[in-house]
Design a binder for these strands. Structure first.
Length: 550
RNA sequence: GGCCCCUUGGUCAAGCGGUUAAGACGACGCCCUCUCACGGCGUAAUCAUGGGUUCGAUUCCCGUAGGGGUCACCA
């Protein structure tokens, strides 16, 4: 077989040589130990947690080592691509602070190793495809979809391994005449790799996360170029990561089964194999069994889900970090105010197994992240969220920014900050009552209390309320009212013998809380009243009195 | 079905031949307390299984089971 002739027949327009490409994309000049890696998502319109997990790992590895982190768009599957998905993808990664040194941006590509969108690299792949054919390492295959289906059915019936190999690789050693005939007839073809592997052999491999692996050699002649001339993932991976001088490949461990093929490919192309880090999958409980989170079934995998719920970006990042590096939580406890970038990320601390996604844990992380924010930050972020997801709330926040900030400041800061906000979508029920526009009496005073007691308490309090009072004075007044009703102002005494009293200071406080906030639970009442101001406090108390007296 | 990976409480996990087997989330209880949070204290709960190696296995090796992944002209 005259392979160079076949190469010319298949790729008559390819004039560039691998050598020319090598010099166009020279080795990077980086210090020893610098890691070059990338995020390489495909634009399917669905940006998910996995993208963050993978991206954050790569990004940390690169930037901590003084290396380069770039974004490559894997848009080789035209059928699955969604309009505008590339932009969505880029924006989402940016929103989650996955920042690239080079690669695709909404304004085009940046960096000397581009283009960074695979469809724009078709010519480059063809250079190497031609080389492989000329060396007898790849060949055209004219099988139709039907023929391939039939092959699979046969294999199933015979209990053979699936795939295009051995006797099933019908175009592997076809005479030149057959190829020319099909070509002349204009039949579509794919380019297949000529595998020299044998499933009787094992290859040893060391993965950065999984450790020492023993894998079976690949004997399948996988597709390198699809019939539209665009490469499959495998071929693009080899060519791109070589030419872009990637040193480390971080990806999900669903790629492990194709690793032997990738090793063969790199060798056949004469490329040096990068280091690999295969991350275990994110799982969820489905009934009683675990399974990998699925794009189709699980809304919580989509980043839009977290945005809509109002999880702060750093909360999601911290949660991902707690999953990725087992020592992250300890570090965060020791350094509560440190910047995330200061955490020493290490692939050695990554778990080789998959982990279950845990919303409770995410919420807890988020509460802590938010508790560390200033009132101004919280205000800004809640507003940003509300503008998109709760317009009336946003309007209220913008109408009275100082009042809103004051409300968010209650219980914030200090050694024991409140930790009751986990997501922005809960902010309205948390403090929305401070705005008259959003105030509503959601909870009622337990009817077991004597109406006269309630009215008396509210009336007396209203007569004497002064926002200028110190908290102790304010509370002493409430206690005085409590005593005058025959309720217990000393909680210890009340708890010792509840039957001896008609109620307690807690109950009187509850009357006031319902009147002023419309709810049974709220942040510190003294502070709440000061934020509301005397006028509003009295108005709300009187409003409740009216409904009670009616 | 073939191939591969994984296996410490409900979840995330520390551990890397000798430990009372950390810690966090969650659950429950108590304390603090004007409510809810916060905080403090505490309780329950884990080495899948069989066989080796060893004076000694959660830790090393092999088998078994279970879970997961993958076997496309998708990535």
């Amino acid at each position: 077989m005259d392979y160079p002739y076949l190469a010319e027949l298949l790729f008559p327009d390819v004039k560039l040589t691998p050598e020319e490409l090598e010099s166009r994309y020279p080795a990077r000049q980086l210090p020893e130990g610098a890691i070059v890696s990338r995020a390489a998502p495909s634009p399917t319109g669905f940006v998910h947690l996995g993208n963050i997990v993978q991206g954050l790992t790569s990004e940390r590895l690169c930037h901590q080592s003084g290396g380069v982190f770039f974004l490559r768009i894997e848009d080789t599957d035209a059928k699955r691509e969604v309009q505008g998905a590339v932009e969505t993808l880029i924006e989402a990664l940016k929103h989650y602070h996955i920042l690239f040194d080079e690669g695709a941006t909404v304004d085009g590509d940046i960096g000397p190793y581009g283009p960074y969108r695979q469809r724009q690299r078709a010519q480059i792949y063809h250079v190497y495809a031609k080389k492989l054919v000329a060396e007898g390492k790849a060949y055209p295959c004219f099988c139709t979809e039907e023929e391939l289906d039939a092959m699979r059915n046969t294999q199933e019936a015979r209990k053979d391994n699936f795939g295009y190999y051995g006797a099933y690789a019908v175009w592997r050693d076809r005479p030149m005449e057959d190829i020319k005939t099909e070509l002349a007839a204009g039949k579509p073809w794919v380019l297949r790799f000529r595998s020299e592997g044998n499933i009787e052999n094992k290859i040893k491999f060391t993965d950065l996360i999984k450790g020492n692996l023993e894998l079976t050699e690949n004997d399948v002649d996988h597709v390198l170029l699809k019939s539209d001339g665009i490469p499959t993932y495998h071929f693009a991976h080899a060519v791109d990561d070589h030419l872009m001088r990637t040193t480390h490949v971080v990806r999900g461990d669903e790629w492990l089964p194709s690793l032997p093929f990738h090793v063969q490919l790199f060798r056949a192309l004469g490329f040096r194999l990068p280091k690999y880090a295969h991350i275990g999958p994110l799982m969820k409980m489905d009934g009683t069994s675990k399974r990998k989170l699925s794009k189709r079934k699980d809304p919580e995998l989509a980043l839009t889900f977290y945005q809509a719920q109002g999880y702060p970006v750093p909360a999601v990042l911290e949660y991902v970090l707690t999953i990725l590096n087992s020592n992250f939580e300890d570090w965060r406890q020791a350094n509560p105010d440190a910047n995330l970038d200061d955490f020493k990320f290490s692939y050695k601390k990554m778990n080789p197994a998959g982990s279950l996604f845990d919303v409770d844990k995410l919420r807890d992380v988020s509460k802590n992240v938010i508790s560390r924010m200033s009132a101004d930050e919280v205000y800004a972020l809640v507003l940003e969220w509300a503008k998109e997801f709760d317009v009336p709330f946003a309007a209220a926040l913008e109408a009275e920014p100082d009042k809103a900030r004051a409300a968010f400041a209650i219980g914030r800061g200090g050694k024991k900050p409140r930790k009751d906000l986990a997501i922005w979508s809960e902010a309205k029920s948390y403090m929305g009552f401070i705005f008259d526009a959003l105030f509503a009496r959601e909870d009622e005073i337990d009817p077991k209390f004597d109406k006269a007691d309630v009215c008396a308490a509210l009336t007396v309090f209203a007569q004497d309320y002064d926002p200028a009072d110190e908290q102790s004075v304010w509370f002493d007044k409430i206690k005085a009212i409590t005593d005058s009703l025959g309720y217990a102002s000393d909680m210890k005494a009340y708890r010792a013998d509840p039957a001896a009293f008609r109620g307690s200071v807690a109950d009187v406080s509850m009357f006031l809380r319902v009147a002023v906030t419309g709810k049974l639970n709220s942040p510190d009442m003294y502070e709440v009243m000061r934020v509301l101001g005397r006028k509003t406090v009295l108005a709300r108390i009187h409003a409740l009195l009216e409904t009670l007296e009616r």
